[in-house]
């Protein structure tokens, strides 16, 4: 699917992130206490803790941030965000970094591909479709993992907990128009 071009290319990553975050990022207020890195359930798998990401961002080490696996390992649980003593919207900043990494072609391929596949699916049908998503994603990226998923899939199918066909919303054209307009808006900023 088509991505919006990076808003204001040529901005520092910090500035770009600040613009992308839907509420004030407050990154300038970070006191590097590590409340986020301490709270993160998946920190063990991250190359940098969120705190370290913020330090790198402020130090202008943009490449390190863009190539870090951190935002892609983020499980979006908001634990860091509600505990941050400076009320920094950390989860939203992680989304902003992912958006920009995709746009600048620096994203972690696998994880970004899953998101992209999901987004494509939603644009085609207006709904997500677990079976289609899994098969399409695995066929493309992990064909060898697919057979391992079969028992789970069978169990789900047997209990009619997985649809064989996707559902399409009625006004899928309207939805596409909206998304197209939104992408243009994003590009225009």
């Amino acid at each position: 699917m088509a991505h919006s071009p990076t808003p204001g290319d040529g901005l520092s990553l910090l500035e770009a992130v600040e613009r992308k975050t839907p509420i004030p990022s407050r990154l300038e207020m970070c006191i590097q206490c590590g409340s986020c890195g301490g709270s993160c359930p998946s920190a063990a798998d991250m190359e940098h803790t969120p705190r370290a990401i913020f330090a790198l961002l402020r130090a202008g080490m943009d490449e390190s941030v863009l190539h870090s696996n951190t935002p892609w390992i983020c499980v979006s649980c908001y634990q860091c965000m509600v505990r941050c003593p400076q009320e920094i919207p950390i989860t939203d900043i992680m989304y902003a970094i992912k958006n920009i990494a995709i746009q600048r072609g620096a994203a972690h391929k696998e994880e970004a591909a899953f998101s992209a596949t999901f987004a494509e699916m939603v644009e085609s049908y207006g709904r997500s479709f677990e079976l289609g998503l899994a098969t399409r994603y695995y066929l493309k990226h992990h064909p060898l993992r697919l057979p391992g998923m079969a028992p789970l899939g069978m169990g789900m199918l047997a209990r009619r907990r997985m649809d064989l066909k996707p559902t399409r919303i009625k006004d899928v054209d309207g939805l596409r128009d909206i998304l197209q307009a939104a992408r243009e808006m994003e590009a225009a900023q």
Binding site: G34, S35, C36, G37, C40, A44, T49
Partner: peptide, 11 residues
């Protein structure tokens, strides 16, 4: 006690 050791950069 769960914490980020910010000097080591690790949880």
């Amino acid at each position: 006690v769960q914490v980020e050791d910010t000097l080591a950069g690790r949880q």
